[in-house]
Design a protein around this nucleic acid. Structure first.
Lengths: 137, 137
DNA sequence: TATGGACCCTGTAGCCGCCACAGGGTCAAG
DNA sequence: CTTGACCCTGTGGCGGCTACAGGGTCCATA
């Protein structure tokens, strides 16, 4: 019963919706531990890797940086530690997302008014170009 | 009267709120034309460069990519061309911004509910970690 | 006139989060 | 035994800069 089912990188890639190169890259930057190799030097992954990579991908989808994910994974392994830090990381990230949304909305308003001014004439009198230009030359 | 006032890269940088390295980089990637040089091989900028760089910076602030800006600048020089393309670029960019906002808002909702579940206990029962993990192991 | 410090030059390498090769090796099916 | 799908390592690229290192230039001051 010491034999666990293992699978190749391609299988892991498909199962998690990750590109093969990305998995190898996660390994290089220390997010995913280096798996055992087969006799032919192929990476042999197990269930633990699948779980970990799924975690990583889900967190990436939620916009966490690889650094944040590294921290989350570290913490996740210390089962009896308080989860304050996890909460803090998530809150910090939420604030960042809120800032980004606000920035984009401000930008959106500016863009919108820019476009609203276009009279579809010639460049010489294009309001968009004018608005971008420094001073009414 | 053939003498125009020129200035060094540092002056241009300050005037436009751009880093010196960034200006040199814009030159390398062909956004800003290479200026004349002084006898000591210093870049000597004029009013035209100032205008162009201001345009670039303003467009960057509005989130246009350097490629888009390149196109806008090209078009801006053809004074008697219709400004449809300009309008199209701006609209396309607006749509992209809208998509980004929507994505971030969806993400924000997910994050928020994640955080709302945290009971500040131990990692072993942390809802955030659980939510990120693939299956309730 | 010498010197110090502020500026400028080129070139290269790094950031993030991958993606896309090139140039090989491995493995299983037919 | 060949074909073709997979795997390996290593390198370079994307956007949009930023940050050096290792020099040159310029101008004011002592």
């Amino acid at each position: 019963m010491g034999t666990e089912t293992t699978f190749n990188i391609g299988v892991l890639a498909k199962a998690t919706g990750t590109k093969v190169e990305t998995i190898r890259w996660y390994e290089r930057v220390g997010l995913l531990s280096a798996p055992d190799r087969t006799s032919g030097n192929y990476r042999a992954y197990g269930a633990a890797h699948l779980g970990r990579l799924s975690f990583i991908r889900r967190a990436r989808d939620l916009g966490f940086s690889l650094d944040q994910i590294r921290t989350l994974l570290d913490i996740a392994e210390q089962q009896d530690r308080s989860c304050e830090t996890v909460d803090a990381i998530a809150r910090e990230h939420l604030e960042e997302v809120d800032r980004k949304i606000a920035d984009l909305q401000a930008l959106r308003r500016e863009l919108d008014s820019l476009i609203g001014q276009c009279r579809h004439g010639r460049i010489a009198e294009c309001r968009i170009i004018e608005a971008l230009a420094p001073c009414p030359a």
